[in-house]
Design a binder for these strands. Structure first.
Length: 557
DNA sequence: TGCACGACTTGCATGCAACCCA
DNA sequence: TGGGTTGCATGCAAGTCGTGCA
């Protein structure tokens, strides 16, 4: 698909900004219609059973299904849910149901639990039937034709209705996400294709033929009023080329990053406040891999920030802390309300600038009051074609992986030890980018299990060695292989334990999928004779097929 | 210049299937 | 063979950034 000769020349397939010439697909798959509850499943109001109208019942089931979740105990969630639920009630229901606290959904909740239990208990044949039906749906709706290629669609199913769950302290949690109908859907395909048919008796909102965009269908979601799209899978040509381009931009930054760094250091001394702010912000983005930090509409989303939107309350300055000078302490909620906490020593000039920016400000004031992402990105664009704040994250992530791999890899290591080194390099990047996860619920237990296995293996090994000694006395060497094999197994387990422990609160997936130039990994695998399957699973290999084709063992980011 | 909007990327959590072991 | 574990796919929320308009 992509010729290796073009390695350094990621191309625009079309010069007029169009993304395709031909696009044909079957349209989306809608959520199954609501099935009313059997009469025996009761909803109680104020202790008395009450039959709900279908629309009110459906929304009630969304709440009932979540009863075990912490969300349903939160005031905002309950308030938002109740308000939207009432809109679905008949006037009679509205006048009867006046207090959510008097609503009892537990019978419904138990019914759903029993249902999911029953699903687990289904016979093999029944499960197979469902699997086949899913496969049929995938074959029919899961692919499209784009410019002579059959491509996998990323999300061909429309999101079902339900209760909105934001992340962090979201002011809209609990609101009703309404059901999407064909009348809400805009279809995008080429004129000369076979247009998708809406379900019998329905119509699409619109059918358009816009080849300047990559999406196949879209609808407007009712919580934030934003548009949702049906797009292609990461393995598709259109996503792959874009991904490749992204890494090529980061590689161009590598060539001029020294110049840019010298420039912003110089700008720390500027007469103009806005230039100093821009330079300090850029320093943070570069050094700490912070996100750009767009402004957000207050009250519409959780209160999170990035670099440009940092507030006074998010940093603390310590002229001296322990044995270090000029320390900045960051403490704020970033994307997805993940906490960013870091104490780092900075250069004196940066520190003095920060003190200046803080003068006469309240905790809730912007740290960089003369800066926003658009100003910053305009500046970056002047420094390098295609440069934006997020390119620094990609660049620093990829260059860190490359450096770490160089440092950690050792030719004498076994394959598992090499893979551990890879994971550690990956981990360094995840830490830099603050990619965290909640420790798995079963973490402690699974660590214990692993330790038990290690102990057993150790016992096995010493037994085998004893046996070997005895055998040697008998001039039989055949047991040597055996202890060697056990040693290998033991080592593998120990490596696994180390890896898991170090990974307790770190999520590697995001950096691997979005920030690390896959050609670095492919080259490393070739250089150290590690099978690519050890690094990338099947889906990842499909996504990075372009890189697997392209990179040789001497590839340099 | 500021803002709203649209398109696309990034991100964590969840749920399920495959796997493993007793 | 069942029950727990693990790895992976999926879901969908929440970012970034460019554009067009007043």
């Amino acid at each position: 698909l992509i010729s290796p000769r073009l390695e350094c020349l990621p191309f625009e397939r079309y010069t007029d900004g169009s993304k395709w010439r031909f696009l044909e697909h079957k349209g989306p798959v809608f959520a199954p219609p609501y099935e009313p509850l059997p009469d025996k499943v009761r909803f109680y109001y104020d202790g008395k059973p009450m039959k709900l109208s279908a629309p009110a019942e459906e929304v009630a089931t969304f709440f009932a299904k979540m009863l075990d979740h912490e969300y349903t105990t939160k005031d905002i969630f309950r308030k938002n849910f109740y308000k939207d639920w009432r809109k679905e009630m008949t006037s009679e229901e509205k006048s009867k149901i006046t207090d959510l606290n008097k609503c009892n959904f537990s019978d419904m909740n138990e019914y759903f639990k029993a249902q999911s239990e029953a699903r687990k208990q289904m016979s093999k044949e029944e499960k197979l039937k469902i699997k086949e039906e899913n496969e049929r749906l995938l074959q029919e709706y899961g692919f499209c034709i784009m410019d002579n290629h059959k491509e996998r669609i990323g999300n061909f199913r429309i999101e079902p209705p339900g209760l909105f769950r934001g992340r962090g302290d979201h002011p809209k949690m609990g609101m009703l996400k309404r059901r999407i109908r064909p009348e809400d859907i805009i279809i995008n395909c080429s004129k000369d294709s076979k247009h998708p048919k809406p379900p019998p008796g329905t119509k699409w909102k619109e059918v358009r033929h816009d080849n300047k965009v990559t999406w196949l269908a879209s609808w407007t979601e009712n919580i934030q009023g934003s548009i949702k799209y049906i797009m292609l899978n990461p393995s598709s040509r259109i996503k792959g080329e874009k991904d490749w381009q992204k890494y090529e931009t980061a590689r161009r930054l590598k060539k001029c990053v020294d110049r840019i760094r010298a420039q912003y250091r110089d700008d720390w001394k500027s007469k103009e406040m806005r230039i100093r702010q821009r330079a300090v912000a850029l320093y943070f983005i570069d050094k700490l891999a912070l996100r750009a930090g767009n402004e957000k509409e207050e009250g519409e989303t959780a209160d999170t920030v990035g670099c440009c939107s940092l507030r006074v309350e998010h940093i603390k300055l310590y002229p001296k802390l322990d044995d270090q000078e000029y320390v900045v302490e960051f403490d704020f909620l970033g994307k997805d309300s993940i906490r960013y906490y870091n104490k780092i020593p900075v250069e004196k000039r940066v520190f003095k600038n920060l003190q200046l920016f803080l003068e006469n400000k309240q905790p809730e004031d912007d740290l960089f009051d003369r800066l926003n992402t658009s100003i910053l990105n305009k500046h970056l664009q002047e420094l390098m074609d295609g440069l934006t704040a997020k390119v620094f994250r990609t660049y620093n992530a990829s260059i860190t992986l490359q450096q770490q791999l160089k440092e950690l890899s050792c030719s004498d290591d076994s394959i598992p030890a090499k893979v551990l080194s890879y994971n550690r390099a990956n981990r360094a990047v995840a830490i830099l980018c603050n990619h965290q996860r909640a420790p798995p619920k079963t973490f402690e237990k699974s660590m214990q299990n692993l330790q038990t296995k290690i102990d057993e293996k150790q016992n096995q090994l010493s037994a085998a060695r004893k046996q070997l000694k005895a055998a040697k006395a008998d001039h039989k060497a055949s047991h040597d292989d055996k202890s060697k094999k056990i040693e290998e197994q033991l080592m593998k387990l120990q490596v696994q334990a180390t890896d898991r422990e170090e990974n307790k609160q770190i999520a590697l997936g995001t950096s691997k999928l979005n920030y690390l130039d896959p050609r670095i990994s492919v080259a490393w695998c070739k250089k150290w004779a590690v099978p690519i399957e050890k690094i990338y699973n099947k889906t990842q290999r499909e996504k990075f097929a372009w890189a697997i084709d392209m990179a040789e063992k001497d590839y340099e980011f």
